Computed example of a mutant assay.
Amino acid sequence: MTRTILVTGATSGIGRAAAARFAAEPAEVFITGRHADTVERTAKELNVRGIVCDATNPVAVANLATHLSSLDVLVNAVGGLAGPPPEGASPLEAAHAEWQSHLSQNLLSAVLTTTALRDRLTHGSTVINIGSIGAERRGGSYGAAKAALAAWNASLSAELAPRDITCNVISPGYIADTNFFRGQLSDERHAALVEETHNKRPGSVDDVAETAYFLASSGARHITGQTINVNGGASTTR
């Protein structure tokens, strides 16, 4: 039976790779992004359906929900770093803007989207939230938002598990082929991030996409409420 998949923030990076992986199933895949031109182009390239949606906007998310009658897999891939502070902002105003931006992009986007679509999730559905290694290591306001995402995911899992819906976080380490660092990552920092891993390579968007695909498979039905680290050993658990 053909599954219905929604991947938010899927016009680039991890979200795009996840959408491409599910589209190869084949499945009915929907993607979202904030800009009509990139959504249209990506949807055409991946042969999926595109919907323009700012996942931090409750009105836009409510409209997104009207396009879906049922949903088998939801991948909340919206996220990123805050932009520069407003011109002339005081230190307090700058801190407020930074924290608001990180919480909105990396936590509320997933909360709003999942809340709007939870009644569309069916028996055996999967919710996957994209976190970050920054939640555990020197992540500042960005890491705090990703840590909150994992805490919320644990509660969401408990709420939805009676409907046989799994909810997990994928926590990537350094992923080289994204625009996360906006072209400002130095060669020295790249080398240091790679050196932290056990396998001495950066992660790829396909590493994360394949993990998402597994979590949405029949083999992962007893995995829920978890944070799955995909970081080459840069951060380990015990």
Score class of each variant (00 low, 15 high):
residue 165 I to M: 01
residue 174 Y to V: 00
residue 198 H to F: 12
residue 74 L to N: 08
residue 104 S to R: 10
residue 144 A to L: 13
residue 182 R to C: 09
residue 204 S to T: 15
residue 210 E to A: 11
residue 109 S to I: 05
residue 96 H to N: 10
residue 163 R to M: 06
residue 70 S to K: 12
residue 157 S to N: 09
residue 103 L to I: 12
residue 112 L to M: 07
residue 95 A to R: 14
residue 75 V to I: 15
residue 156 L to K: 10
residue 197 T to Y: 03
residue 123 H to N: 13
residue 192 A to Q: 12
residue 164 D to M: 08
residue 201 R to Q: 09
residue 150 A to R: 11
residue 190 H to Q: 13
residue 111 V to N: 11
residue 113 T to S: 10
residue 81 L to M: 13
residue 72 D to F: 02
residue 207 D to A: 04
residue 161 A to C: 12
residue 200 K to V: 09
residue 79 G to H: 06
residue 168 N to G: 07
residue 99 W to G: 02
residue 201 R to T: 08
residue 77 A to L: 04
residue 93 E to Y: 06
residue 192 A to S: 10
residue 171 S to N: 12
residue 162 P to W: 00
residue 108 L to R: 14
residue 91 P to V: 01
residue 155 S to C: 15
residue 208 V to S: 05
residue 97 A to L: 02
residue 190 H to E: 14
residue 99 W to L: 15
residue 180 F to G: 01
residue 108 L to Q: 15
residue 189 R to F: 11
residue 86 P to T: 03
residue 121 L to G: 07
residue 180 F to I: 11
residue 201 R to K: 12
residue 172 P to L: 03
residue 187 D to N: 09
residue 163 R to L: 07
residue 82 A to M: 08
residue 143 G to T: 03
residue 155 S to G: 15
residue 123 H to Y: 08
residue 124 G to Q: 02
residue 130 I to W: 00
residue 135 A to E: 11
residue 88 G to E: 03
residue 210 E to Q: 13
residue 76 N to A: 05
residue 125 S to Q: 01
